[in-house]
Simulated scan of single mutants.
Amino acid sequence: MRVGVVVSDRGDWTAEAIGSGLSRQGAKAEYLDFSELAALVGPDLRFRGEGRDLLGLSALIVRDLGRRGSSDVAFRFEALSALEGSGVRVVNPPSAIQRAANKFATSVALQRAGIPHPETLVTTSLSAAEEFVAQYGRAVYKPLFGFKGRGLLLLTAEDPSPLRGLIEKSGVVYLQEFIESTAPRPRDIRAFVVDGHVAGAIFRVAPAGSWISNLARGGAPERCPTTSEIEDLAVRAASAVGAVYCGVDLIETSSGLAVLEVNGTPSGWGLHQAWGIDVGELIAGAVLRLAGGSG
């Protein structure tokens, strides 16, 4: 069975772990960089990547799509949908990747599933944004399609001035009420879900003097026991966005856990550092089962 692994960085630990897991379970892993993707629309529909016929794949696992611009990203998503429609099992499904990548879509999915989630405002209106920050005193700005903690800003009622520039630049702002964690140090919880189960969880502890806990921004992974509350919320959040595998970020509050967001193309390195858990093996097994292989 041929299984593609879409990744822009061939040194990525998670992609390598998935590929190794596929090989150990009898499948042939083929790494693909979608910067080399080509679609030919004629009497037949054909897709090629780095000289390979993508329609000959049994499955395609997306670790990251890479990007050059908005048109490029739109093409890659449409290509995933077309491949899925042509019989290639795509994981995560294109709809799930899009829903998780768009924080507004994630918030709506979580709300409809009845999952605790910070009060959130998405708006093109400067006055509405200013009112929201004034109401909560502090609010977190997140790029609508942001990742790895890049571009996060903590806005205060005393100084909401960055809002004007953010709206002028992006046209829209995504704001969440700032929730003070009840933990002794600034941190959140990353639960890694694979095929309807939590493979493990970690605390992501912010570096000294920072409130941002993303590992890519200097956060440190520490072991977090998987409680029944973590299991319930993380699995429900994964189901809400339609993901086979994902990272679910939660925060500890005085009234229990709340889900901050869902990552549809997560790294498993932090979980491996803390627990030694190989999510690549688990993802490979889940995909092979879905594609009709052993797994």
Rank of each mutant, 00 (worst) to 15 (best):
Y174K: 11
F34S: 06
Q25G: 06
T156L: 08
T156V: 05
P43W: 12
L54E: 14
P118H: 07
N92Q: 02
G270A: 14
G256W: 05
G268R: 01
R76H: 11
S23C: 03
V3F: 05
D278E: 12
V90C: 04
S170R: 11
G285W: 05
S20F: 13
G268V: 06
E130N: 00
A206G: 03
D12Y: 13
D53T: 08
L121Q: 07
N102L: 02
N263D: 15
V62K: 08
L126F: 10
R99L: 08
S58C: 09
A15I: 02
D44L: 12
R164Y: 11
D188T: 06
E130F: 00
I179G: 00
R24H: 09
R52I: 02
E78N: 14
H117V: 09
D232L: 01
L54M: 14
G151C: 12
P93Y: 00
G276W: 14
A243H: 04
A39Y: 11
E130Q: 14
V140Q: 00
V88T: 09
I115Q: 08
R63N: 13
D44T: 14
I212V: 15
E177H: 06
I230A: 04
L57F: 15
V279P: 13
R67Q: 06
C224R: 14
I18S: 05
A183C: 06
V173A: 01
P184M: 01
P266M: 06
V73G: 03
R76M: 12
F147V: 10
V205E: 15
L110N: 06
D249W: 02
Q273P: 01
Q111I: 04
S181W: 12
G56H: 08
V90F: 03
P143F: 01
I230W: 08
S213Y: 03
G56Q: 13
I97Q: 00
S81L: 11
A27P: 08
P266V: 04
D12L: 07
E30F: 13
L257K: 00
I97N: 03
I251E: 03
G26H: 10
A101W: 11
A274M: 11
Q111D: 12
I230T: 09
V122D: 07
